[in-house]
Design a binder for these strands. Structure first.
Length: 420
DNA sequence: TCTGGGGTCCTAGGACCC
DNA sequence: TCTGGGGTCCTAGGACCC
């Protein structure tokens, strides 16, 4: 049996842990740049129709009128709270797959002698007691079924956030209960497609001939189909795999027209992604840089472009990547536009010790330099050392807007909660 | 005025190899 | 009239996830 534990309205719940005054009250968390709503607790969902990803400016009045508290996103806080949850889960099973910041699959095989429903409640209680975060627990023979069980644990109040599919009757019953769009792995396109041919429940989907599924939904759909029928196709991935692409792209706090500021942001992002690259002991062969205006705007002239640089030798050296990145940026930059976003993405990722050099390669790279660089930043905090990128202005004019960010209660000494 | 960010996997088709 | 057979690698685009 496989369990999936998933935190309820995770970001909003994290904020509430440190703000007990907000318990039982509506809370939403906004995306980067305070652009749109990315998390809402059940109180917020209940009182206002707050669609996820709704631009904030459209519903701000409504939020204020309803006394909804809103927060800018605070990923440092959420990341740390996530670690706490994952550590607790490891006490319940040695095999844990951290699937995302707020959910994990756990292996529950070999526990035939115990009542899995009780076990689920124990997990839920312990996480609540130790972290203050509410979770839902779904347990079933396959991952896809466990996901449905998890959904059912929350949707039907009587389940009290734990649901176990441990019989053929419960499996079939859950398949009838679940809408096709709620099946993990079936997104918008396939949902529309399936609805068009009259398939509305998960059960309907499992009754389609496999050949149809395979033809129209590839092998991915076939796995989903089999998993729903109780045949496990997706195993637990305990070891996190090295990333195949590492990128970052953030909207500017305001629209930018000058290349100097965009360049600064671009260098900053390259600094960030190369650090991630080194942390997994990899090098990258390709560096992509892209630039875009605000595609939502009807008034602005639109332009977007991207360029992918093939590096002579795969590298993880910030300075080399930065030089190449800047060159690339200059090649796609056109003046006369109001830019909204610049992004970088590293790909063609290979292990550091398997880098294929070319015939004429001369080792000039000083690996030790980057090592010292990373060590100092680990010890003294992010950006204690950084390339001289930000020499033009002390204030990062391109930086994100985060007007309502909560303190970093769990990671900064000066932000620790004071109790009087 | 204002609209997020970071990923994965699969397939078809083209170009190429012996 | 009639033109082989067995592969690999790469990329773009589509679908999906949180």
């Amino acid at each position: 049996m496989i369990g999936i534990i998933d935190c309820n309205s995770f970001y909003a719940s994290c904020e509430q842990v440190f703000r007990p005054d907000l318990r039982g009250k509506p809370v939403v968390v906004l995306s980067n740049n305070d652009g749109c709503v990315i998390a809402a607790n059940k109180e917020a969902k209940a009182l206002a129709h707050i669609p996820m990803f709704e631009p904030v400016f459209k519903i701000k009045d409504q939020l204020i009128k309803n006394n909804v508290t809103f927060f800018s996103s605070n990923y440092t806080l959420y990341g740390e709270m996530s670690n706490r949850v994952m550590r607790i889960l490891k006490e319940f099973s040695p095999i844990v797959e951290i699937y995302s910041i707020d959910e994990a699959f756990i292996d529950l095989s070999g526990l035939d002698h115990i009542d899995l429903e009780d076990y689920g409640h124990e997990i839920k209680k312990k996480i609540m007691r130790y972290t203050g975060l509410p979770v839902g627990v779904g347990i079933a023979p396959t991952k896809v079924l466990a996901k449905l069980a998890n959904r059912r644990s929350k949707k039907e109040i009587s389940n009290n956030h734990v649901y176990v599919i441990n019989s053929e009757e419960k499996r079939i019953d859950t398949l009838h209960w679940a809408k096709i769009k709620d099946v993990w792995g079936i997104g918008k396109k396939h949902t529309t497609r399936l609805q068009e041919i009259g398939k509305h429940s998960a059960y309907d989907f499992t009754q389609l001939p496999l050949s149809w599924v395979r033809k129209n939904m590839t092998v991915v759909g076939e796995r989903t189909w089999r998993e729903l029928r109780g045949e496990s196709c997706l195993s637990l991935e305990v070891m996190p795999k090295p990333k195949k692409a590492i990128g970052t792209a953030k909207s500017f706090g305001k629209k930018l027209t000058s290349i100097e500021l965009i360049e600064e942001a671009c260098s900053y992002y390259i600094n960030e992604v190369s650090e991630v690259l080194r942390s997994q002991n990899s090098c990258a062969k390709y560096l992509q840089v892209f630039l875009q205006t605000n595609y939502h705007s009807n008034n602005d002239k639109q332009y977007h472009n991207s360029i992918t640089v093939t590096l002579e030798t795969p590298t993880n050296n910030t300075f080399i990547l930065n030089t190449e990145g800047k060159k690339a940026l200059h090649r796609i930059f056109k003046s006369g536009y109001r830019y909204k976003k610049v992004g970088v993405c590293l790909s063609g990722i290979v292990p550091e010790n398997y880098v294929q050099t070319n015939l004429f390669h001369q080792t000039s790279e000083k690996k030790g330099l980057m090592e010292v660089f990373d060590k100092i930043n680990q010890k003294f905090g992010k950006s204690t050392l950084s390339p001289a990128l930000l020499n033009k202005s002390k204030i990062k004019e391109w930086e994100l807007v985060k007007e309502q960010r909560s303190p970093r209660y769990t990671t900064q000494w000066e932000d620790i909660l004071k109790i009087q």
